[in-house]
């Protein structure tokens, strides 16, 4: 039986519309639910006091610091490595089997479950290299986790720089490195920054890889070798061990809000980037 095209069109429109509606609803529901339960707990002291009694009372200050420290550590390692790799792949080699294998490897790395990264980090950094549960171990593990994202987004950004810029720069007698630093990177920067910020979101939210490598100490970290608990780990422990559901939701609300903030910033940047190069 043939469906009349007009009817089909109407039907499809309704189906697609509902799909979109469901997606948006689920997203809004999660955010609204967490904020509704979490926001009442939020206060200045919740943000600025350290947790007491395993987190049953007090605030989440040390976990905010732990999250920031781990994320900063991860970025400090992954950004130069990732951008450097992208520059090498895009500017310093011809397309070949090797570059394709490297790219494929990066994509595979991006698909590995984070708990595997956690195990890897635990064995390599915590045990073998003797860093123990620490910001250093956790940060390095996170760095390897976000590396593929940074490589691919940086590559995309580099590739969007017109070929003619490269030609002109070299035809004026610049070295390749001068070309990269004076022409290519300034043009690709917004795109690279976008990728880095996306990775920030991922690092902030990561739990499995971090609990294995940074541990879950509640004290305020004092050095790279301190064990530290991130917000997501704190939430996990509070909720899972039933220590304090209100405080768990409070932590979740701070997490959701900070990730939202990061995404808004990314979105803005991306917008500006697209406007500039279209």
């Amino acid at each position: 039986m043939r469906v009349p095209p007009r009817l089909e069109q109407r039907f499809v429109k309704v189906v697609l519309w509902s799909m979109t509606a469901i997606t948006v609803f689920v997203l809004l529901f999660i955010v609204a639910y967490i904020l509704r339960r979490g926001l009442p707990v939020l206060s200045l002291s919740f943000l600025t006091e350290n947790p007491h009694e395993m987190g049953r009372t007090g605030g989440i200050f040390s976990t905010i610091v732990g999250t920031l420290a781990l994320t900063a550590m991860a970025l400090a390692v992954a950004t130069p490595l990732g951008v450097g790799t992208a520059i090498f792949l895009n500017e310093y080699t011809w397309e070949s089997r090797v570059t394709r294998i490297i790219r494929f490897g990066a994509d595979c790395l991006a698909g590995i479950p984070s708990i595997i990264f956690g195990l890897f980090g635990f064995i390599l950094f915590v045990i073998k290299m003797g860093f123990g549960w620490s910001i250093l171990s956790g940060g390095l593990t996170l760095a390897f986790m976000i590396l593929p994202t940074i490589i691919r987004t940086s590559e995309e950004a580099l590739r969007s720089v017109p070929r003619s810029y490269r030609e002109v720069s070299l035809s004026l007698g610049s070295t390749k490195w001068q070309m990269v630093t004076r022409v290519i990177l300034p043009s690709a920067l917004p795109g690279i920054v976008t990728g880095v910020i996306l990775s920030v979101g991922r690092s902030i939210g990561e739990t499995a890889a971090v609990i294995f490598t940074a541990g879950s100490a509640l004290r305020l970290p004092t050095s790279l070798f301190s064990s530290s608990r991130t917000m997501s780990v704190h939430f996990y422990i509070l909720a899972r061990e039933g220590i304090s559901m209100p405080n768990a939701y409070g932590t979740a609300a701070v997490l959701v809000l900070s990730i939202l903030l990061v995404n808004i910033v990314t979105y803005r940047l991306m917008h500006r980037f697209i406007r500039k190069y279209s």
Binding site: V168, L170, S171, L172, G173
Partner: peptide, 14 residues
């Protein structure tokens, strides 16, 4: 390349 300069088909300022 400093001694032998090139002007391209499309104007291509940085």
């Amino acid at each position: 390349r400093r001694r032998v300069g090139m002007v391209f088909q499309r104007p291509n300022p940085f």
